[in-house]
Amino acid sequence: MRAQRRKGPASAVVDGVSFSLNRGETTCVVGESGSGKSVTARAIMGLTRLEPALSVSGEIWFDGKPLHQMDNPSVARLRGRDIAMVFQEPMSSLDPLFTVGSQLTESLRRRHGKLPNQNLRTRLLALLSDVGIPDGERVLRSRPHELSGGMCQRVMIAAALAGEPDLLIADEPTTALDVTVQAGILALLERIRTERGMAVLLVTHDMGVAAEVADQVLVMYSGRIVENASADEVFESPRHPYTAGLLSCVPALEGEKPSVLPTIPGSMPSPEQRPPGCAFHPRCARSADRCSTETPLQTQKPGLEYACWNPIEPTFLPMPTADVPTHTAQAPKEDAR
C-alpha cells in the first residue's frame, strides 16, 4: 500500500506498507507521530478516498474481497458491518446534536435493519452494558457533551460493535483519555476481542500498550514498516534499531508518557525531508555506509520481518522462528496488504 499527497512534493506519506491481520488477534501499529499509522488505518477502511489530498494505491484484501477494486458505495457497505473503526477523539467523533441512542441505532441498523422498538431498546441497552455502561437508559438519552471522554469512547466502541464487525480498527482510542480510563478501555477491547473472536488493529504510539495487548506488532517509521513480528519477538529481541530504541524508552505503563524519545536523538523526518536509503540512518547508532544510499529490503521470514541492513542479532538463544506459534500457522482470514 502506498499513500501519496496529491499536492506539493510527490513524497509518499505511506510507502510499501504490507501486512496481514488474523482473526482473533490484536495487531498493534506503533511508531512516532507522523509515521503514517493513521493514514494506514484509514486506508484499510477506504476512508482515504474521502480525502482529496491523498491518493492511495496498492491492494487491500478483506476476507477474500479486493477492497481496492470496489467502488465507493460497495466499500461503504462494508464499513460498520465488516470493518468498524474507533477514533482518537471520542468527544468530537459523535454528532453533537444527536442522542447517543439515535447514533447507536444507526449503527445497529447497519447489520440488523429496522428493528421493532422493544427489540431495539433491549439491544441498545445490551450493547451499552457490554461496553461497561451500567446506566444505559440515561446514556441513551444523553448527547455527547453530557458525557465524559471515557464514556464517549465506550459509546464509540459500542457503536463499532453494533455492526458485529470481523475487524475492529482502533486509532489511538485511549490517547485523549485519562490514564485511569485508558486501562479500562484497553481491557474492554481485549475482552471483546476474545469474546467475539474478531481481529483488532490497534494504533498506538505507546509501546507499553502494545506490550500489554499485542499478538503482532507493526513498527512504522516515516511511512514504512520497519519491523513486523510477533509480540514475543519484538519485545524479547527486537531486530530493528528503531524498535529497540522505542523499547528502551518505554516508561512504566502507569507513568507519564515522554513527548520525545529520550534514547533516540533527533526527530523523525517529514515525508518531504525523508533522507535517501534507510530513513532512520541519521538517527541510527548502527548505521553503515550502505544505509544512507540503499533502502533496506524487508527480510521475509514468516512471523519476523524487518527492514534493516545491520539488524540487531538476538542476544540470547531465541526459539527457532519456524517453531514460533504465530498467526501464519493459521489460515489468515483478514488480509490487509
Binding site: M45, G80, S93, G163
Partner: peptide, 11 residues
C-alpha cells in the same frame, strides 16, 4: 471528526 466517524459507520 464526527463526519469521518459517520463514514466509518458505513452511512
Amino acid at each position: 471528526n464526527f463526519v469521518t466517524a459517520l463514514h466509518a459507520k458505513g452511512l
